[in-house]
Design a protein around this nucleic acid. Structure first.
Lengths: 214, 214
DNA sequence: GTCTATAAGGAGATAGAC
DNA sequence: GTCTATCTCCTTATAGAC
């Protein structure tokens, strides 16, 4: 925990809003919209391979105009990672994630994790691809590790309590679990019918098995 | 298949070997060793964030000397991706992957996939992080998709044959399966005791469930 | 085979006119 | 708010001496 402070490096979340109205004009230049544009580009090409020129072109303005709205490339990354991490840590703060038997809490978290992953797909996708090249990225990686560690200790607790069948190695189970859920960002695309059933289906498959025994 | 040719773009695999001897001198400058150095750097920082200067420094020579041995950055990437894909497609060519009930073939492939992943860890790691920015990357992505499609059709076949319990959606199962196995590159590190048991354990967990039902 | 020097272009970021 | 022009640095890659 001490290695993963909740506050990101750099200036804290200055979520300024362009104007009072919520109406969406076509060329949108408030911080939130430009962030969405940038994150989409980052995910398409990779953060390092995406230039500020790419971002400004995607927003429909020149690079200089783009700089009028955002303070820099890494600041965009920081805001995106913060949003993803806020979503994930929000799950752990929910009552159903804090009270009751370990196994029930674990199953709740898994389902909610699928929900957050799909709801915040671009931001979580970016988070899961961060390599640790800058201080911002290392901060995000540390927070991610803290989240995973919480899951892992919950799996271990469920095993200790006898809620999980013998023979399950908590360490391996926790890693495969995180890997399975996180792999959704590789193929999930919003708008397909049946998306609302996905969390339950994922929970079922990691529980009953993806492929049955021989 | 026509979208994923087996031969990569660019000059085909010219696996030249420096000299006859297999002895490993410390500053190693044959193509294989420099490739290993480069792939390690690519994985540590990300392909796009790694410069030729980074690679040459890791090899202990100047950038110009490095260019004397390799033809360019993308050629290194191509060779690495080719190696990873050769390993994966080699599994599909094995007799146990081609004969017998679909479920048995599937379980064999999963176990072997874990073996190849761990044996060729750096190369497969790089493969799984490719974004598609160049022709080489798009070629690798297409080959990856072809591999995944083979797994998916095998899952579907197992469902049709009644070897898998009802209610399993082949499409979702196949994607979670690939995601689970591929997630090994995020945490597996060679040299830990018990690695030889990992394939069987992974097959067991994707079969019996990672976390049991409530 | 290794080096220094350099070409040619793209990167992030800023200045300042309008 | 948006633009053109520009600064500075870093990138891939090559030339050519030793």
């Amino acid at each position: 925990m001490s290695a993963a402070p909740a506050q990101p490096p750099g200036p804290p979340g200055r979520t300024r809003r362009a104007r009072g109205g919520a109406g969406a004009r076509r060329p949108v230049y408030d911080a939130q919209s430009l962030l969405a544009v940038a994150v989409a580009e980052f995910n398409a090409r990779g953060y390092d391979a995406t230039s500020m020129e790419d971002l400004s072109r995607a927003a429909g303005i020149t690079k200089s105009s783009f700089y009028h709205h955002v303070s820099g490339k890494e600041e965009l990354l920081r805001a995106a990672l913060e949003r993803a991490l806020d979503g994930l840590f929000g799950i752990l703060a929910e009552p159903a994630a804090q009270n009751g038997p370990a196994l029930a809490r674990l199953r709740h978290i898994i389902g909610r994790q699928v929900e957050v992953l799909t709801a915040e797909l671009p931001y979580v996708t970016l988070l899961l691809r961060v390599r640790g090249n800058t201080e911002t990225e290392r901060w995000a990686l540390a927070r991610r590790r803290a989240f995973d560690a919480t899951i892992a200790s919950l799996v271990a607790e469920a095993v200790e309590d006898g809620e999980v069948r013998a023979g399950v190695e908590p360490w391996l189970a926790a890693r495969l679990l995180s890997g399975t859920v996180n792999s959704l960002v590789e193929w999930y695309r919003p708008g397909r019918p049946g998306s609302e059933l996905l969390p339950a289906r994922v929970v079922e498959m990691v529980s009953a098995g993806i492929v049955p025994p021989a």
